[in-house]
Amino acid sequence: CFKERTRHLLREWYLQDPYPNPSKKRELAQATGLTPTQVGNWFKNRRQRDR
């Protein structure tokens, strides 16, 4: 489970761009302490949920 702060950051970025490029994923991974793969999976799952 991700911390509330991490989820908030991910949601904020998702609203700006639901399809982040690899450099954005790396930047967000550094900001949250997650791996770029975890960030990518979160975005993928969130896009699925929004369908």
Results as ranks from 00 to 15, higher is better:
residue 46 R to I: 02
residue 38 Q to N: 07
residue 46 R to Y: 06
residue 44 K to H: 02
residue 10 L to A: 00
residue 29 A to T: 00
residue 13 W to S: 14
residue 23 S to Y: 04
residue 9 L to M: 10
residue 46 R to K: 11
residue 14 Y to A: 00
residue 35 T to Y: 00
residue 1 C to Y: 09
residue 10 L to I: 01
residue 17 D to M: 02
residue 21 N to W: 02
residue 13 W to D: 03
residue 36 P to R: 05
residue 47 R to L: 05
residue 30 Q to T: 13
residue 20 P to E: 00
residue 51 R to H: 10
residue 15 L to A: 14
residue 8 H to E: 15
residue 43 F to M: 01
residue 20 P to Y: 06
residue 51 R to A: 09
residue 28 L to F: 07
residue 49 R to N: 09
residue 25 K to N: 07
residue 41 N to I: 05
residue 47 R to V: 03
residue 28 L to S: 00
residue 4 E to F: 06
residue 30 Q to K: 13
residue 39 V to C: 00
residue 42 W to T: 06
residue 10 L to R: 00
residue 38 Q to E: 09
residue 18 P to M: 09
residue 12 E to N: 07
residue 9 L to R: 09
residue 42 W to F: 05
residue 6 T to L: 12
residue 31 A to M: 13
residue 37 T to L: 11
residue 13 W to M: 12
residue 34 L to I: 05
residue 5 R to H: 03
residue 44 K to M: 10
residue 31 A to W: 07
residue 12 E to P: 00
residue 14 Y to N: 01
residue 10 L to F: 04
residue 16 Q to E: 08
residue 25 K to I: 14
residue 40 G to C: 09
residue 24 K to N: 09
residue 24 K to I: 13
residue 24 K to V: 11
residue 6 T to D: 07
residue 23 S to M: 10
residue 26 R to E: 14
residue 1 C to F: 14
residue 38 Q to W: 03
residue 29 A to E: 02
residue 27 E to A: 10
residue 34 L to N: 02
residue 27 E to T: 06
residue 7 R to E: 15
residue 22 P to E: 14
residue 38 Q to V: 02
residue 48 Q to S: 12
residue 19 Y to Q: 08
residue 2 F to P: 08
residue 26 R to W: 07
residue 12 E to M: 10
residue 35 T to D: 05
residue 40 G to V: 05
residue 36 P to A: 10
residue 3 K to I: 11
residue 31 A to H: 06
residue 24 K to A: 13
residue 32 T to S: 09
residue 30 Q to C: 09
residue 4 E to D: 13
residue 23 S to R: 02
residue 40 G to L: 05
residue 49 R to T: 10
residue 44 K to N: 14
residue 8 H to I: 15
residue 38 Q to R: 02
residue 26 R to K: 13
residue 41 N to T: 10
residue 9 L to Q: 09
residue 12 E to R: 06
residue 4 E to L: 10
residue 51 R to V: 06
residue 45 N to F: 04
residue 22 P to H: 07
residue 50 D to T: 11
residue 38 Q to T: 04
residue 9 L to V: 09
residue 4 E to G: 07
residue 5 R to Q: 04
residue 40 G to K: 15
residue 16 Q to V: 12
residue 34 L to A: 01
residue 25 K to G: 03
residue 27 E to D: 11
residue 25 K to F: 10
residue 36 P to E: 14
residue 27 E to S: 04
residue 37 T to M: 10
residue 43 F to C: 01
residue 32 T to H: 02
residue 17 D to V: 01
residue 49 R to I: 07
residue 40 G to Q: 10
residue 3 K to Y: 05
residue 30 Q to D: 13
residue 43 F to E: 02
residue 25 K to W: 06
residue 12 E to H: 07
residue 12 E to K: 06
residue 2 F to Y: 12
residue 25 K to D: 04
residue 38 Q to D: 05
residue 36 P to N: 06
residue 32 T to L: 08
residue 10 L to C: 05
residue 19 Y to V: 05
residue 48 Q to F: 06
residue 15 L to M: 14
residue 36 P to W: 09
residue 25 K to Y: 09
residue 27 E to R: 07
residue 29 A to Y: 00
residue 27 E to G: 03
residue 51 R to K: 11
residue 18 P to N: 04
residue 45 N to K: 11
residue 11 R to S: 12
residue 8 H to S: 15
residue 50 D to E: 10
residue 12 E to C: 10
residue 14 Y to K: 04
residue 11 R to A: 08
residue 36 P to M: 11
residue 9 L to I: 15
residue 20 P to D: 00
residue 23 S to G: 09
residue 29 A to Q: 06
residue 27 E to W: 10
residue 6 T to C: 03
residue 35 T to P: 02
residue 9 L to N: 02
residue 26 R to I: 08
residue 50 D to F: 06
residue 17 D to S: 04
residue 25 K to M: 12
residue 7 R to T: 13
residue 32 T to N: 02
residue 13 W to I: 10
residue 8 H to V: 14
residue 18 P to C: 09
residue 4 E to K: 12
residue 22 P to A: 12
residue 8 H to P: 02
residue 29 A to D: 06
residue 6 T to W: 11
residue 14 Y to C: 00
residue 5 R to A: 08
residue 50 D to K: 07
residue 46 R to A: 11
residue 2 F to N: 15
residue 24 K to Q: 14
residue 12 E to Y: 07
residue 35 T to H: 03
residue 42 W to K: 00
residue 43 F to Y: 00
residue 14 Y to D: 01
residue 13 W to H: 13
residue 16 Q to A: 13
residue 11 R to C: 09
residue 8 H to W: 12
residue 41 N to Y: 00
residue 1 C to R: 05
residue 20 P to V: 05
residue 33 G to M: 06
residue 35 T to S: 12
residue 28 L to I: 14
residue 31 A to D: 01
residue 20 P to K: 03
residue 6 T to N: 07
residue 27 E to Q: 03
residue 17 D to Q: 04
residue 12 E to T: 09
residue 3 K to S: 15
residue 37 T to F: 09
residue 13 W to A: 13
residue 23 S to C: 07
residue 20 P to S: 04
residue 44 K to Y: 05
residue 47 R to C: 05
residue 40 G to N: 06
residue 10 L to S: 01
residue 18 P to S: 07
residue 9 L to Y: 09
residue 18 P to I: 03
residue 25 K to Q: 15
residue 14 Y to E: 03
residue 36 P to F: 15
residue 39 V to W: 01
residue 12 E to S: 08
residue 18 P to E: 03
residue 32 T to W: 02
residue 32 T to Q: 00
residue 47 R to W: 07
residue 43 F to H: 02
residue 32 T to G: 02
residue 39 V to E: 01
residue 45 N to I: 08
residue 39 V to P: 00
residue 36 P to D: 08
residue 10 L to V: 00
residue 13 W to Y: 09
residue 38 Q to A: 10
residue 49 R to E: 14
residue 8 H to A: 15
residue 47 R to H: 03
residue 49 R to H: 01
residue 2 F to L: 13
residue 42 W to G: 02
residue 43 F to K: 01
residue 37 T to S: 13
residue 25 K to V: 14
residue 9 L to W: 00
residue 29 A to M: 03
residue 31 A to Y: 08
residue 49 R to V: 07
residue 17 D to N: 09
residue 14 Y to T: 00
residue 6 T to M: 13
residue 9 L to E: 03
residue 22 P to Q: 09
residue 19 Y to M: 09
residue 34 L to T: 05
residue 37 T to E: 14
residue 41 N to R: 15
residue 35 T to A: 02
residue 40 G to Y: 03
residue 41 N to L: 09
residue 12 E to V: 08
residue 25 K to P: 05
residue 4 E to I: 09
residue 47 R to S: 02
residue 33 G to L: 04
residue 13 W to G: 11
residue 14 Y to P: 00
residue 45 N to E: 10
residue 33 G to C: 03
residue 36 P to C: 06
residue 50 D to H: 05
residue 38 Q to I: 04
residue 48 Q to W: 12
residue 42 W to L: 03
residue 49 R to Q: 15
residue 14 Y to M: 02
residue 31 A to Q: 13
residue 10 L to N: 04
residue 45 N to M: 08
residue 3 K to R: 12
residue 48 Q to E: 14
residue 9 L to A: 08
residue 37 T to I: 12
residue 41 N to Q: 12
residue 45 N to S: 08
residue 19 Y to S: 06
residue 22 P to K: 02
residue 8 H to F: 12
residue 9 L to F: 10
residue 41 N to W: 03
residue 44 K to L: 06
residue 3 K to P: 12
residue 44 K to E: 13
residue 2 F to A: 12
residue 36 P to G: 05
residue 31 A to F: 15
residue 35 T to Q: 03
residue 31 A to C: 09
residue 33 G to N: 07
residue 23 S to E: 15
residue 5 R to P: 09
residue 44 K to F: 07
residue 15 L to S: 13
residue 30 Q to V: 13
residue 37 T to D: 14
residue 18 P to L: 00
residue 15 L to E: 12
residue 2 F to Q: 11
residue 23 S to L: 09
residue 37 T to W: 06
residue 3 K to F: 12
residue 40 G to P: 03
residue 27 E to I: 05
residue 24 K to Y: 04
residue 20 P to Q: 03
residue 17 D to R: 01
residue 47 R to D: 02
residue 46 R to V: 07
residue 45 N to Q: 09
residue 1 C to K: 08
residue 39 V to K: 06
residue 19 Y to W: 14
